[in-house]
Design a protein around this nucleic acid. Structure first.
Lengths: 217, 217
DNA sequence: TGGTGGAATACTGTATACGATTTTAGTATA
DNA sequence: TATACTAAAATCGTATACAGTATTCCACCA
């Protein structure tokens, strides 16, 4: 099946990536004309893209004053990770009631892709999307799509701040180990153990980020 | 301060109300031309409004096929109330650490407005927004704006399904009592008690709705 | 010098217009 | 009758154009 791409959706992807990667810095006003010219499109799809990004929390609108890439405080980062911990543990509980062997094997495959990233020279920026892919694969069997939608947004936002400090290799490899352990607990259908590990996994990642972040802020 | 209203924001409000009130039924295709003509605006603000409503979960877009008012299943309703229970209890915990007497007095005033609604002849449709106002007033001191944003969305969606059955007067008055009790526990800064009550408050409301909903679905 | 008013500028918000895609209806064919 | 194809209509997506609002800059005055 071919997926018809609208201009708007392309613009969303481009701008999202630019904001997450800090090519567009937090606080930068996003001029519709400038973006439209740069991307060779009209302002309409740019506006619509900005609206979607506002819903994702990456951009803020002020009437007649335009959009600005959101600034985020240390408090907010910790709030985001706190929310992730709560929602992801909850959804994991439901998922473990229904997860199949095939589901677990898919998760396993994603983890193997992950291992590639730890090798030197790998594109470390792929980490965020792969991380989301892995987590999602464990939550998907829950069938709770509203929750998944919220978690997806939270990941997007967390990603953005994870990329502030690219030298978190140590954290990456620790996260990797935790992923393997988490998957093992899922195979064992150990709901309590898996939830507990997931909670600390998310919260320690968050704390690591905040530590790296504090000196800057 | 005067708030400059854009056409788009007005359209958002109108359509949101129409969807929540079921004047626009779930599953209805939302034709941009028809809406634009009806509201005497061009299609641009209509499109932008629909995009925002999509972010709120009231509408679904399919490329080149337009927007449809989302249909929701019983499972999803219960998911929504489950999410509310988790997130609102969490945020209430943080709020109680910081809530002031003034905050509590504001909540008290809202509850008094509430009492008016139980009198016969009152506009029962105001229930949803007032309910949100009350809950929000208790959560606001937490300062967790991301969480509040998510909860706000959940309330909007729950409201929509609360209005399916308008004859929930019995539930309304029970909810009223629970609100008073909740506020009392907040005055006492009884975090554990307040969280526990809030959880059952939300979940029983959800279950009541689902009971009234089941025969239809 | 510091502050106020107002025109010029820049930018956003919305309408209109056009091109692309999907849906519908009708016709031909097996 | 059922299916496949085609043309027309309906609808969406995007470009262009215009209108309205915010910002900037400079002249003027205390």
């Amino acid at each position: 099946m071919i997926t018809r791409k609208t201009v708007t959706s392309s613009v969303v992807e481009i701008l999202r990536e630019k904001i997450i990667s800090h090519e567009i810095e937090a606080g930068t006003p996003l001029r519709q004309n400038a973006l439209a010219d740069e991307l060779n499109v009209s302002r309409i799809p740019v506006r619509e893209a900005l609206l979607q990004l506002e819903a994702e929390g990456l951009v803020e609108f002020a009437p007649h004053r335009g959009a600005v890439a959101t600034k985020i405080s240390v408090d907010e980062v910790s709030e985001l990770f706190g929310l992730r911990a709560i929602l992801e543990c909850d959804v994991l509980g439901y998922a473990l009631d229904r997860i199949t062997e095939e589901d677990l094997e898919i998760a396993q495959l994603i983890l193997e892709e992950f291992d590639e990233l730890l090798k030197p020279g790998a594109d470390r920026y792929a980490w965020g999307s792969l991380n989301w892919k892995f987590h999602r694969s464990l939550y998907l069997p829950s069938g709770r799509k509203r929750t998944l939608g919220l978690i997806r947004q939270l990941h997007t936002n967390c990603d953005r701040y994870l990329r502030i400090q690219i030298q978190l290799v140590a954290d990456f490899s620790r996260a990797e180990e935790e992923h393997h352990e988490l998957l093992r607990l899922c195979w064992a259908r150990d709901k309590r153990g898996a939830k507990k590990l997931l909670k600390t996994h998310i919260l320690t990642t968050g704390r690591g980020l905040i530590r790296a972040f504090k000196p800057v802020a």
